[in-house]
Computed example of a mutant assay.
Amino acid sequence: MVNPMRGDVLVTLDGVDHIARLTLGALAELETELGAGSMVELAARFEEGRFSASDVMGVVVAGLRGGGWRGNRADLLAMDVAGGPVAAAQAAAQLLARAFAMPG
């Protein structure tokens, strides 16, 4: 079950629902993969609309892995993301927003 308070975001791949969340480990992996100076810098790119397709892929893969998915970027490239690129970008933005939201 998706729990937004825990940072969960639903991502549907090839018709199968997956819970994605940016855990601390997923965030560290993402920061290294995307070469971001900081996670705040990456979040700012999304807020300002300066993100790339590679940024979206990185965030979605990290979130899926944080939720327990065992795939990688190549696996995601071969799958159908329900809603296409727009839904993937929205999921990435939600993952970042929920990872850094203050409780309450």
Rank of each mutant, 00 (worst) to 15 (best):
D75I: 01
T12M: 02
F100T: 15
E33Y: 13
D75Q: 05
Q90H: 08
M102N: 07
Q90L: 10
A93N: 01
V11M: 01
G104F: 09
L77T: 07
A44H: 13
V11I: 06
M39A: 04
G58F: 11
E41M: 04
E41V: 02
R6L: 15
A89Y: 02
R6N: 10
L77F: 11
L13S: 09
T32Q: 13
G63W: 10
R6V: 09
A99P: 00
A20E: 02
L30D: 03
V59A: 05
D80C: 04
A97L: 05
A28F: 09
R70Q: 14
L42F: 07
M5L: 14
V60I: 06
E41A: 15
L64T: 09
A78S: 15
R65S: 12
M5G: 09
E48R: 15
A89D: 01
R21M: 11
D55I: 03
R73H: 12
A91S: 02
D8F: 00
V59C: 06
G7Q: 04
A36M: 09
G63P: 09
A53N: 08
V86I: 13
F100E: 08
V86A: 10
P85H: 10
L96C: 06
R98F: 01
A99E: 03
M79R: 15
M57A: 13
T12P: 02
G84F: 04
L34V: 13
A99T: 07
A36Y: 10
L42V: 05
G68T: 08
N72R: 09
E31N: 12
A92G: 15
T23V: 04
A36R: 13
D17C: 02
M5N: 12
G37S: 11
P103I: 04
I19K: 14
D17V: 03
R50C: 03
H18N: 13
A97I: 05
F51R: 00
A74K: 14
V81R: 03
G25D: 15
V86P: 02
D17A: 14
A91G: 01
L13I: 08
E29Q: 15
L77M: 13
L96Q: 04
E29W: 11
A26T: 10
G63T: 09
D17R: 13
V16I: 15
W69C: 07
D8T: 00
A53H: 08
Q94F: 05
L34W: 03
S54D: 15
L34G: 09
Q90A: 12
S54F: 06
D75K: 05
Q90T: 14
L30K: 10
M102G: 08
E47I: 04
A26N: 10
M102V: 12
G67K: 12
L27P: 01
M39F: 05
M5E: 13
L27C: 05
L24R: 12
D14R: 01
V81A: 10
L30M: 11
A44V: 11
G7T: 04
V81T: 11
R98Y: 01
A74R: 15
S52Q: 00
A101F: 03
S38N: 05
A93V: 00
E41R: 11
G71R: 06
G63E: 07
L95K: 08
